[in-house]
């Protein structure tokens, strides 16, 4: 197996009167099709590491490699292109665009990438929505859906451009236990069926239990000895 996402000595420090180190020298290799959970106490730097791995933030030191590419040499636009082509994001709050229908939300990344025709993109969006059991909701707006349905739409949107890696920040943090289990199964299934890599930050023990690997973070450093209290 080859590493699809790597962190090599990644440091993220916020400058200011009192500099704060969010991530401190993290080395990490994540394989293709792997389901990895990043866990740790609140404020330990889990989300910051996820944003760095997801190319939303740029490390103060060290490198992030995506699919073998050293992303430290990329500018803002090139990083945005990599996110568009190779990464998908899921957040704790679904973060769907409220004025757009479910279908339009899923279409957005495909329309931005522009590789598929309008009809093909619609067909793919419909397939994704049906796969996650929300095909009938495609004309609705996010506020007309339940929390679990919204999160499934967010997953469909994250998968729209067939990314190599899905990065999820507390994907079940705002869901009931049934919806959480549903999201967990979907993400677990993705790694097995399509070899999509899933990297998730979570506090949810049952969610983490489904992962191939759990990485503990404490004070911005990897601490695999850490266990949820």
């Amino acid at each position: 197996m080859s590493a699809v996402l790597s962190a090599a000595g990644v440091v993220r420090r916020l400058s200011g009167e009192v500099p704060v180190t969010l991530v401190d020298g993290v080395n990490l290799d994540i394989e293709r099709g792997e389901f990895v959970c990043i866990m740790g106490p609140s404020g330990s730097g889990k989300s910051s590491l996820l944003y760095l791995l997801g190319l939303l933030d740029v490390p103060t030191a060290g490198r992030v490699l995506l699919d073998g590419d050293d992303t430290s040499r990329y500018g803002e636009d090139e990083l945005a292109n990599r996110r568009l082509e190779k990464l998908g994001f899921i957040f704790q709050f679904h973060f769907l665009l409220a004025e757009f229908t479910v279908m339009e939300n899923v279409l957005l990344p495909m329309r931005r990438l522009g590789k598929l025709s309008d009809d093909s993109a619609r067909t793919r969006a419909r397939e994704l929505l049906e796969r996650f059991g929300i095909g009938a909701q495609s004309a609705k707006r996010p506020h007309q859906l339940s929390g679990g349905e919204r999160q499934r739409v967010a997953i469909a949107r994250a998968l729209a451009n067939e990314p190599l890696v899905i990065l999820a920040d507390e994907p079940t943090g705002n869901l009931d236990s049934v919806s959480s289990a549903n999201v967990r199964q979907i993400l677990r299934g993705l790694t097995r069926e399509t070899a999509t890599t899933v990297v998730a930050v979570t506090h949810d023990g049952s969610f983490a239990a489904a992962a191939d690997r759990r990485i503990g973070i404490v004070d911005g450093k990897i601490d695999n000895a850490w266990r949820p209290g």
Binding site: E76, D77, A80, R83, L87, F95, L97, L108, L113
Partner: peptide, 15 residues
């Protein structure tokens, strides 16, 4: 928040 989502999706600043 929508702007952040669009950017995380891969929209450029100029978009």
């Amino acid at each position: 928040r929508d702007i952040a989502i669009l950017k995380s999706m891969g929209f450029h600043s100029r978009d």
